[in-house]
Design a protein around this nucleic acid. Structure first.
Lengths: 121, 121, 121, 121
DNA sequence: GTGGTCTAGACCACC
DNA sequence: GTGGTCTAGACCACG
C-alpha cells in the first residue's frame, strides 16, 4: 500500500480515495486493521490531522470503523467502498465532460481527444 | 455570449476560459470590444472584482488589450487565445487521466468508460 | 446569539447544536448570514478550527451553506435544522433512559425522579 | 450477573457502575467474592486491563477490597456503593437537564417529553 | 500505543 | 475581508 499523492489537489480526499481503491481492489480485506493514523501520516509524509480527517470521512460513510484505543478497521460491507469509488469516478468524468464542453469541444471531439491521448502515452 | 458558470469551481479562471473560447471559435472577433466589467459582472452574476481580475489575466497573456477609458478589446493575434485554450484542454485531460488512474483504472478502462459515457448521454 | 459552552463536553458538536437551535427557534432566519468563522471563534472563546469543523458538519447536513469568500448562510429549508434538533433531543433522551435503567431504575422511577428534580430546581 | 455494555460509551466506568448496581440491589452481598479479572474480561468481552482499572476504581472508593492472591471482595459497608450510585444518577440527570435546556427546552417541556417517552415505550 | 479533540497559526484563492 | 486547507503539536481517555 503506497501513498502516492498529487500535491496540486487537496490531500485529505486523496487519502480517502486511496483507501477506497485499496478496499475495492482487495488490497485491504474486510475486518483488516488499517495502519495507525500516525503511521499513515509518516509514510505519506503528511500531517496526522489530515489523515485523521480522511479516516473520519471514511467512517462517516461506513467504509471503515474506528475502535478507540485499538485502531481503524475495514467495514464488513465492502460494497459501500465500491459504490463510493464508482460514484467518484462517475462524478469526475461528468466534471471532465462539462469542462471540456465549456472549452468548446462536443462529445465526439472529447472521445477522439481521449483516444489520441491514450495512443500518445 | 453567455456566462454559464459552474459554481463548484473558482469563478475567475472560468471567466478567462469563456473569453478564450469565444475568441477561438469566432464569437469574438479581432479588435472587437468586450462588454464592460460592470456589464459582464451583472450578466454573469458575479463580483465585478472577479471580472476585473479575469480581464487582467487575459491582458497579461496578450489575449486582449485594455484602452484606458474606452474598454477592453480582442487582441489582433487570435493564436494566443487558441494556444491557451489547447493548453488548458491538454492540462485538464492530463489531470483527468491521472485521477482516474489513481482511482484504479488503466488507460483502456478509461477509454472504454469515456465511450460508454458518450453513448449514455 | 450567545455561545454558552459546557466545558465538560466536546465543543464542536455543541456549536453545531447551538446553531441548530438558533435556526429552529427563529433567532437565525432563512438566508441570513452567520458570523464569520473568526468572529464566532472570538465570541465563543474557542479555536477557529473548531468552529470551522462545526460549520462543515452543518453544511454537510444541509442546514447551512458556505460561499467561498463571502461567508456562511442559513439554508432555505429550515426543516432540516428542526428535524436534526428533534433527532438530537430524542437520541439524548434515549441515552438517558438507557443509562438510568443500567443504573437500576425502571421507567416509573425515572419519571418520578425527573419530576422531583424539576420541583427542586 | 450480566455485563451489558453500551459500546458508544467508555467501558471502564460502565464496569464500575455495573458492580455498584449489583451491590446496591443485592446481587452481590457483603463479603462476597467477585469473579476474577480474567473471567470478567472474558464474559464482558473486554480487555482485562480495562477490568483491572475498573476494580482499582472500586477499591479506591472503598466499595470492594482486594486480597493479594485470592481475589476481590464486596466491602462490609454497602452504603458507599449505594451513595456512589445515587451520586451518579444525580449527575447524569443534571447533565441531561443541562443538555436539554441547551437544546431549547424548558423544565416543563422536558418533564412532558419524558412522560411521553415513557408512554411510547 | 491508539483514536479523539482542541489549540495555534500559517497559506491560499476568492470577493 | 472570507472560507478552505494544511501543518504542528498538545492533551485526554481507552486498551
Amino acid at each position: 500500500m503506497q501513498w502516492k499523492l498529487d500535491k496540486d489537489r487537496p490531500i485529505c480526499p486523496q487519502l480517502t480515495e486511496i483507501v477506497c481503491v485499496a478496499i475495492a481492489n482487495g488490497t485491504l480485506e474486510t475486518g483488516q486493521k488499517l495502519m495507525s493514523v500516525r503511521e499513515i501520516a509518516l509514510q505519506a509524509g503528511v500531517n496526522p490531522n489530515t489523515v485523521q480527517k480522511a479516516l473520519e470521512n471514511l467512517e462517516r460513510l461506513g467504509i471503515i470503523y474506528s475502535v478507540r484505543g485499538s485502531g481503524s478497521f475495514v467495514s464488513d460491507d465492502k460494497s459501500v467502498a465500491k459504490n463510493t469509488l464508482e460514484r467518484i469516478i462517475s462524478e469526475r468524468t461528468a466534471e471532465y465532460f462539462a469542462q471540456m464542453k465549456a472549452l468548446g469541444l462536443d462529445s465526439n471531439e472529447i472521445k477522439n481527444y481521449v483516444e489520441e491521448w491514450n495512443e500518445n502515452e
